[in-house]
Design a binder for these strands. Structure first.
Length: 566
RNA sequence: GACCUGGUAGCUCAGUUGGUAGAGCACCUCCCUUUUAAGGAGGUGGUCCUGGGUUCGAGCCCCAGCCAGGUCACCA
């Protein structure tokens, strides 16, 4: 890897520090006495007192024999003042003239000991008496400056770099850190809410032999010792219900789920869902609980129930409107589709301008009508209830209308935030619904729902009437932090790997093989050799050239010889 | 998967009709003891995403690809 001039300078500084007998990466504990936020929010108590702080130097203003710098620790930022004669002991003032002015850089991690004071212009600062190098930074940080009006200049804003190098994003963009702190506040608030009620937080398998509880394309992997395929879970619903069968009254889990589908600004291949199941409750109870929960989360994370989400003002103050889905369709399309069959529904869809095809059943058609014509109207939190049976294979039939189910989705800002049911606990009905699903999806797609026989067996032992809910945590955090993109609320959103360009001159054979390898990423050695069309001797020379340049690697595994990019 | 937009210095961005590669900040040298987007003087720094093509000549035009963002499609 070619070093930039800035990086070379820093490496030279690193060596010069060592030459002066200063370890740029010391091992010993550095004991701090307080944090920056403590000082800045409580100046009167700290004025004139000695403090020890550690953090990253974010900027420097050198003015001859005195300097100001900005120190950032986990709690915040503050100014420090360094005076040549106060931090240096020798005649040459090495600590100031050489170490601080020449060898330290923006981004270095330092420790300081000094006295809290206020400058002439009134900025709370620490007058440094002792400076300690704690870690030398070899790569320059982006320089982000904020002017007197609070306007940010040269913001580090390239989305690709921010996501790939989130550590840099967190260092220079303070608001990014705030988003993630708020994320933790939200999940903590939720945990507290459940724990106070005696609900049990549990963990269930992520590696599942049957990926159940939803319809989605799973990630597939293989267990060597058992020699069986395993899937990363697409939901944990069926496992939590097994625990209700087992006699727990209420269980919940913050679950990372995985779906092998498209990515966009609201979908990441791995995402977090909180699922909760409570025995002896129904979906009406669950709506009440959800209102209470969200009101509390809004207050715990934002201090208010009144939030701005994009262009909209949204109030999380309970209670929320409850609208049956067929009623919603009647309101927004003018058609009463209750009791309609497939043919009639298709007609309605065509009339309101929705494209339909023959594979769409009653459930899918109603879903389309709602999704296209209604969903976006529900900005304020609204429970959409009583979905048709075809759309809800895990939901109990509605107590007054056998065509419907006791299900609700919570819509906020025109998007689905939660999905909940009175859970289906009739094992025979459940088996039939699974079989119906299978028939529906037998038209040959890769999302065919597997029938989980063990789950049916569990239900046969008897599951109490139960209500369950799944809340999309990433989406909830997006709402509560007013972020339009899921990538902004995930520390490390999924990205395509960065491909390295060859850093050295390759000959034509090497280039050709490298191109093949770039396409394949990883390939069996004999296969690559065949593709290259090279003679034995040329092949040997070429692959050795590539491995020597650290571009490719040959791996000898149980499954054979593989070549992969480094 | 389709379409649109973008990729130029460490960061943020300009770059005219196709004619020697630019600015601010950062960095380096010097001056400066309460500054704060510190200031003043001088300077360094580039595979212009990659690979082809057109051309006397390509950052710019054409083709293919890579990566990202957006819109749509897909996603109970």
């Amino acid at each position: 890897m070619q070093l930039s001039p800035l990086e070379i300078v820093r490496r030279e500084s690193l060596q010069k520090l060592r030459d002066l007998g200063i370890n740029p990466y010391p091992a010993e504990e550095f004991k701090t006495t307080t944090t920056i936020k403590e000082i800045t929010s409580n100046f009167d108590a700290f004025e004139g007192k000695e403090v020890v702080l550690a953090g990253r130097m974010m900027s420097r203003r050198i003015m001859g024999k005195a300097s100001f710098a900005e120190l950032k620790d986990a709690s915040g930022r503050m100014q420090i003042y360094l005076n040549r004669d106060e931090i240096s002991s020798d005649d040459e003032a090495t600590m100031y003239n050489t170490v601080f002015k020449k060898l330290l850089d923006m981004g270095d991690i330092i420790g300081i000991k000094g006295e809290v004071f206020k400058t002439k212009v009134g900025e709370v600062s620490v007058n440094v008496k002792e400076l300690t190098v704690l870690s030398k930074s070899l790569k320059p940080l982006p320089v982000v400056k904020t002017d007197a009006d609070g306007k940010v200049h040269d913001a580090f804003s390239d989305a690709e770099q921010r996501y790939r190098q989130r550590y840099v994003d967190l260092i220079v963009n303070d608001h990014v850190k705030e988003t993630f702190i708020k994320r933790t506040k939200i999940t903590t608030s939720m945990r507290n809410f459940f724990n106070e009620r005696g609900y049990l937080e549990v963990e269930t398998p992520i590696l599942q032999p049957i990926p159940g509880g939803a319809a989605a394309r799973p990630f597939k992997t293989h267990h060597n010792a058992l020699d069986i395929p395993l899937y990363l879970r697409i939901a944990n619903e069926l496992y939590l219900k097994r625990l209700i069968v087992g006699g727990f009254d209420a269980v919940y889990e913050f679950a990372k789920d995985f779906r092998n589908e498209g990515m966009d600004r609201t979908h990441n291949p791995e995402f977090t869902v909180m699922e909760l199941y409570v025995a002896y409750k129904d979906y009406n109870w669950m709506m009440n609980m959800t209102e209470e929960l969200l009101e509390k989360i809004a207050i715990d994370s934002n201090g208010t129930t009144e939030l701005t989400i994009g262009e909209n003002q949204v109030s999380f103050k309970a209670p929320y409107a409850r609208v049956p889905i067929l009623e919603a369709i009647k309101i927004h399309t003018g058609f009463d589709v209750a009791g309609m069959d497939e043919v009639e529904l298709r007609e309605v869809c065509t009339k309101v301008g929705i494209e339909v095809d023959e594979t769409m059943g009653v459930g899918k058609l109603i879903d389309e009508l709602f999704g296209e014509k209604c969903e976006h109207h529900y900005i304020q939190p609204t429970f959409i209830t009583d979905y048709p049976k075809e759309m809800s294979p895990l939901t109990k039939e509605h107590r007054t209308n056998p065509a419907l189910t006791e299900r609700f989705e919570l819509m906020v800002n025109g998007k689905e935030l939660a999905n909940a049911y009175s859970e289906l606990n009739d094992p025979i009905d459940q088996k039939e619904r699974f079989e119906d699903q299978l028939k529906l999806s037998e038209k040959g797609d890769d999302e065919a729902m597997f029938i989980d026989q063990d789950f049916i067996r569990a239900l046969e032992y008897g599951m109490p009437p139960t209500s369950g809910i799944g809340i999309g945590i990433d989406r909830l955090v997006m709402f509560m932090t007013n972020n339009a993109s899921i990538q902004e609320v995930l520390f490390f959103p999924q990205m395509k790997p960065e491909k390295k360009a060859p850093a050295v001159e390759l000959n034509d054979d090497e280039k050709a093989v490298f191109e093949l390898l770039k396409k394949a990423e990883k390939i069996e050695l004999p296969e690559l050799k065949t593709q290259s069309g090279l003679s034995n001797k040329k092949w040997d020379k070429t692959i050795k050239g590539l491995t020597k340049h650290n571009l490719a690697k040959v791996n000898n595994t149980d499954e054979g010889l593989f070549v992969e990019l480094i």
